[in-house]
Design a protein around this nucleic acid. Sequence first.
DNA 1: CGCAGAACTTAACACTGTCTAGATAGAGTG
DNA 2: CACTCTATCTAGACAGTGTTAAGTTCTGCG
Lengths: 189, 189
Amino acid sequence: MSGYHHGDLPRQLLAHAAEMAAEADPESISLRELARRTGVSHSAPVHHFGSRQGLLTALAVEGFAGLHEALSARGDGLSELGVSYVTWALAHPGHYAVMWRPRLLDASDEELDSARRRLWAVLSAAIVEPAPDRGGASAEAYAAFALVHGLAGLWLAGALPRPEEPSELIRQITRRLAGASDRLREQPW
Amino acid sequence: MSGYHHGDLPRQLLAHAAEMAAEADPESISLRELARRTGVSHSAPVHHFGSRQGLLTALAVEGFAGLHEALSARGDGLSELGVSYVTWALAHPGHYAVMWRPRLLDASDEELDSARRRLWAVLSAAIVEPAPDRGGASAEAYAAFALVHGLAGLWLAGALPRPEEPSELIRQITRRLAGASDRLREQPW
DNA sequence: CGCAGAACTTAACACTGTCTAGATAGAGTG
DNA sequence: CACTCTATCTAGACAGTGTTAAGTTCTGCG
């Protein structure tokens, strides 16, 4: 307990950063406040992450990996995938708030790129597969992604009231869009 | 041209603020940089808007009014309303980026409240009307709003590639969701 | 043991938002 | 026309921020 060589400072910093982003916006993450919460000097965070942007990028990488893990487990239809997506976002507001805002992130970061790619693979496979007709596939993909992202964003921003147990509502919402596609697969719901 | 009594400083400040928010994020709006661009002292903006939050709130009010005007003109079906919604958002990125983020705004501002209410009235009328069956109405409303907001947000954030003329793609996307509702009204598309 | 390098601290810089006090100009009143 | 009143804007100061540079402390490896 010497002050130097903390052990796993990066992980602790990321955890506190996620907390701070969850409390308000990701822009409210202050490196100095973060250092204060973690009990280190104000420049310890920049030593590990290079800059504020680096910290946010690391947060996004963690987020992409977590969401990828949450989604790749389940494979029961597009609408259920949407439910899992939104549920994860609501459970990890600090991470999610940063993931789809590339202007906040370091575009040259390779970890970010590959983590995002891995998530993309799961999403696009689930979206394109049940709607294999060409032409409509792109619009279908945009619509599905926009729906879940918009729902998560509105709730996380506090722009819409959210029930304390939203999963059933999420299911109804995603089925509005995915119903047609899921039915194409002759999969009963 | 004396420096004092500029004339319509508030309007100019809002215009430049919208520019700055459009260039990056609304969080990148700096009152001092804004003052520099407008050619006034660093505390002129706070005199007019009270604080940074007040400036963003005024920007949101302007945005709600503009979007309200853009939407209340047209009444040809839910999917076309969605097209107009997203088109307006893409044309006014600085305003839109601030409108649905109440944490950035002054919740006690009455102008904000009424401007938002006016837009809500137009939106909910258009969404609820074509889907009058109870129970599904709420999910339908969430889905429609989430779809257009998510689409606008993803494009504005730069998270998804956007064609230079996106209106036809927007139309295809909104029809994915609104098709069923519009068809309920026996309205051909 | 000793030393190379990683982990962390301290100090400084320019920048930010906000507060206070002061200067200026235009409008309304006598 | 003179005079005050008030809104508009400026100037200065303060604490807080991200970043950079230099210094300190520890760990592990030869």
